[in-house]
Nucleic acid binder design. Structure first.
Lengths: 218, 218
DNA sequence: ACCTGCATGTTACTTACGGTAACCCCGAGT
DNA sequence: ACTCGGGGTTACCGTAAGTAACATGCAGGT
């Protein structure tokens, strides 16, 4: 086959793939992460085997979907993180960007945080341990690494910066995630209040606070 | 039926339930969260319907299992949190207790962090939104609330303490969780180093750090 | 002794879903 | 006219959740 033809086929295949992803997106956003391959295929106007030809298995499809959304969110976060402003301002802006994203499209959020679930084939277990320590959604890991890199590049904390940056990166992302998840479920305050309170925490207000009268102190 | 007989039956049922939970525990710890009801029943020396009679459905069984382990872990954490010592010491001790627990029994950790997955019955969806904002494992929520309560009881941060305590509680727990998960997977440093670095983060070292030379600062 | 009530247990089934094998159709190239 | 490859379908398998109907064993009342 010559180059032109091959390109044509490639293009067509890529377009098809995109259409399928769009359809899958609609279904997942409508039915949640438990959407069946049949449902997705039906939404796309085709049948299961085609999905499998394109994505291998359910994990592959979900991974492809997740990468799209994750890339988009990470781009927004990078923008907030790179803006020219004071550090506190930037931290608040990044937190707010993340929270605004999960608030605007909770379904996407829910989907991204859900681990693939389709990794453990029967009888695949090496030794007796399965996939310990890989619970977190890829999105969290990627955000953690991204933030770690920014911290390492920009912050001066003496020796051991690299290690510290990674710990802090994952830690801060985890803080943001957990607080965001809880907030999204209960809505106990405005987004701005949440952002400010979290930034306060990062700014050491926990250490600075006084003990409450009467107790042995916290 | 008179009281004696009823008590006897109740006791026996409770004992049976405990035996079943023990068996389920063994299987889940051996095969991971994907353990089938058949496997669990086999381990207990019985068959499926009995499990269903006792626990309703798979979610029920898993919830019962999770509560056991969660209670145990929370008890340890409370102990560390309530020890008579300086605040920083206590925070570090609590972090270390958590990390030691997930390090010692990663399988349990993995299981606890895994959402039940068996909540979405087909056709149960109210409106078009499913269970947005309830992604986090029950363990995380419970730890967050617990910590929030301690903070609120012990810390003096002026007005709005209650709200702030809950945000911080969930935030700190999330930080601990994400950092712990990452650390458990990559083991980039010792547990003590991780604890110390995280405590540093909570103690405001992020805000206090200087900008790296050459950049616009973080 | 016999029947009744009830918890305990079983086999065998249904349903749903991920994944796959085998076949089909149609347009392009020779 | 003929085959050849890509896009598509039907029909199927294996597994696992959940259930219905049937069997068994042990109290207690008559």
């Amino acid at each position: 086959m010559d180059t032109t033809q091959r390109t044509g086929q490639q293009r067509s295949a890529d377009l098809r793939r995109r259409e399928l992803l769009e359809a899958a997106d609609r279904v997942v956003l409508r039915d949640g992460p438990h959407a069946s391959m049949n449902a997705i295929a039906a939404e796309a106007g085709i049948t299961k085997p085609i999905l499998y030809r394109h994505f291998g298995d359910k994990g592959g499809l979900y991974a492809a979907l997740a990468v799209r959304h994750t890339d988009a969110l990470l781009a927004s976060l990078r923008a907030a993180l790179d803006a020219p402003a004071e550090r506190r301002q930037r931290v608040e802006s990044t937190l707010d960007t993340y929270l605004a994203a999960i608030e605007a499209r909770p379904q996407v959020y829910r989907f991204l945080m859900h681990p693939a679930d389709g990794a453990a084939a029967p009888g695949d277990q090496t030794e007796q341990g399965f996939d310990v320590g890989k619970h977190s959604a890829p999105l969290l890991r990627r955000m953690g690494e991204e933030l770690a890199q920014v911290i390492e590049e920009r912050l001066d904390v003496g020796p051991g910066t690299q290690q510290l940056a990674r710990v802090w990166g994952h830690g801060i992302v985890g803080m943001m995630h957990a607080a965001g998840d809880w907030w999204l479920g209960e809505r106990p305050c405005t987004r701005a209040e949440l952002v400010s309170t979290l930034a306060d925490l990062l700014w050491g207000r926990l250490a600075a606070a006084g003990d409450k009268a009467g107790g042995p102190g916290f």
